[in-house]
């Protein structure tokens, strides 16, 4: 795995070099500033697989550097780990909002660093394998969508990848989860709604729904991730103020305003169900992650009204028919 590590402190750079070599990661390039890192990226012959970034650096902070890296098409999904002593929530929130994948606190714990990078390495290998399989097959945009895929959605406030959402929650649990809640959202009858769609159409539809959810969550601090099919998981600091029924109405209104269509011109009518919030106040980190999935399960259950159950037993109808 090819890593670019950025830290202005020479002692830390040498320390990282020792640690990374010791745990089996030897292809590491170091930069002493954000500017130097960007120059390295511009000149690089092959892409990097992972970034390790300090936050507090003179000139350009690590968070600004994340934003620059995410704007580069080659690095839209590349894992970025913040390695920092800045543990306050404001830094954690800003890092994940800018596009960080994970957050490792200094002082560096060698075992923890090893575990996190091992997971990243497996993710990088899986993605490379999936990419080579796609390259061997048909055009990715027009091929039928795998609707179970967790989509990467860009440029919508508060919408991040599910892996980042889990890591954010784990980091938040080290600070304080008080006042935060998990919630789930499920698109009603998503199985039929998305049936027969190309990857491009599926991505567009999910992105539109994500945009509506983001708009309606804006009064509060939140992060949201697509977790496959028509399902989303989220965390918000709305706490006990989060009202699932009001949220469903607001999102429904927003989706009607957005006036969605299939690519063949047929209107796409999307309804969502939102779970009741699950308060995270005193939960452990692992229990909080479980709460995310529990909330999504609750949202899915809510979509199964008697009318929806009837649709379930009808034969599938292809879009355009």
């Amino acid at each position: 795995m090819k890593i670019l590590a950025v830290d202005d402190d020479e002692v830390i750079r040498r320390l990282m070099s020792e640690i990374l070599t010791n745990i089996g990661f030897r292809d590491v390039t170091f930069a002493a500033s954000g500017k130097e890192a960007l120059n390295i990226l511009q000149a690089a012959k092959g892409p990097f697989d992972c970034f390790l970034l300090d936050i507090e650096m003179p000139g350009m902070t690590g968070i600004t550097l994340v934003s620059h890296i995410r704007k580069m098409p080659d690095y839209a999904r590349t894992p970025i780990l913040m390695v920092t002593s800045m543990a306050e929530r404001a830094y954690v929130d800003s890092a994940f909002a800018a596009g960080a994948t994970d957050y490792v606190n200094k002082p560096i714990d060698v075992s923890e660093m090893h575990a996190r990078l091992q997971l990243v390495s497996e993710l990088v290998s899986e993605r490379k394998k999936a990419k080579s399989e796609r390259t061997d097959g048909t055009d990715g945009a027009t091929a039928l969508a795998d609707t179970s895929e967790r989509l990467h959605i860009e440029n919508i406030d508060g919408v991040i990848d599910y892996l980042s959402l889990e890591n954010y929650l784990l980091q938040l649990s080290r600070l304080s989860l008080f006042g935060n809640c998990a919630f789930g959202v499920a698109i009603k009858d998503s199985k039929h709604l998305f049936e027969g769609l190309s990857h491009y159409e599926f991505h567009s539809a999910v992105t539109d729904v994500a945009e509506a959810l983001s708009e309606c969550l804006k009064p509060h601090r939140f992060f949201l991730a697509h977790i496959g099919g028509g399902d989303f998981a989220g965390i918000t600091d709305a706490g006990r103020q989060f009202d699932a029924d009001e949220f469903e109405l607001a999102v429904g209104q927003k989706l009607r305003e957005m006036d969605l269509y299939y690519s063949n011109g047929r209107p796409m009518v999307v309804h969502i169900s939102a779970s009741d919030p699950i308060q995270l106040d005193w939960r452990s980190s692992r229990s909080s992650v479980n709460a995310l999935l529990e909330a999504v399960g609750n949202a899915e259950q809510k979509t199964l009204s008697p009318a929806d159950a009837l649709i379930e037993i009808r034969p599938p109808v292809k879009p355009g028919h």
Binding site: D9, V11, I12, L15, D54, E56, S85, K106, P107, I108
Partner: peptide, 9 residues
Amino acid sequence: HKVSGSAAT
């Protein structure tokens, strides 16, 4: 900040 980053490690 500089000292806290590396001292404990």
